[in-house]
Design a protein around this nucleic acid. Structure first.
Lengths: 97, 97
DNA sequence: CACCTACATGGCAAATTGGCCAACAGGGCA
DNA sequence: TGCCCTGTTGGCCAATTTGCCATGTAGGTG
């Protein structure tokens, strides 16, 4: 397997996560499903903007959605994505010393 | 501490890492110092492009540089950034199932 | 059916990013 | 001093990203 291609894949995923609103969303979803409306309250801004963040996360296989009545609920596909928070926190802590 | 601001910081760092060439560079540096020229051979492209990637990583506190003669050697400030590779690999693996 | 609620999508403008070339700068050496 | 060698910085352009508004769509209700 080409190392280069592996890094390309990883870069695409990191890019998908590398946004304040999307991190907020992932963090919230790590504690259970949420509807788009709920997530919108969390991150603020236009509903369509939140919807696009979710579409992007979905396109990268990070979240899945489920329709229930008129609402759409999102959840994490791979809960281990939260390990990124641990990594990031550690790096930021060590960096500041 | 504001959660939002923490995620903003983490997003900035993730963004700094979220590029194929920069991941290649970080991976290489995780195995020891390298000069800009060596890194250029690794990632290809223009030397100035590599230099800018390094400047970006430096600006985010991910790498440091050291001048020795006419060469400049780079190294990781926080080797724990490599944990990101573990996270990313795991997510990609789980996602593909 | 009409209408409302909850989202998704298209489209656009502003801001950011990425990569090349050209020009500049620091250190070593004849 | 003049000339390489090794990087860095500025400038420019193409491509991507972000967020808003307007419009479209799916499901529920009267």
């Amino acid at each position: 397997m080409d190392k280069r291609q592996t890094f390309a894949k990883q870069a695409r995923m990191l890019k998908a996560l590398a946004h304040e609103s999307r991190l907020l969303i992932v963090d919230r979803l790590s504690r259970g499903e949420s509807s788009v409306g709920e997530l919108r309250e969390l991150v603020g801004g236009d509903l369509s903007t939140v919807s696009k963040h979710l579409a992007l996360l979905r396109a990268h296989g990070i979240v899945e959605d489920r329709r229930e009545g008129t609402s759409v609920y999102y959840r994490l596909v791979t809960p281990c994505v939260c390990n990124f928070f641990t990594c990031a926190t550690q790096v930021l802590k060590e960096r500041s010393r």
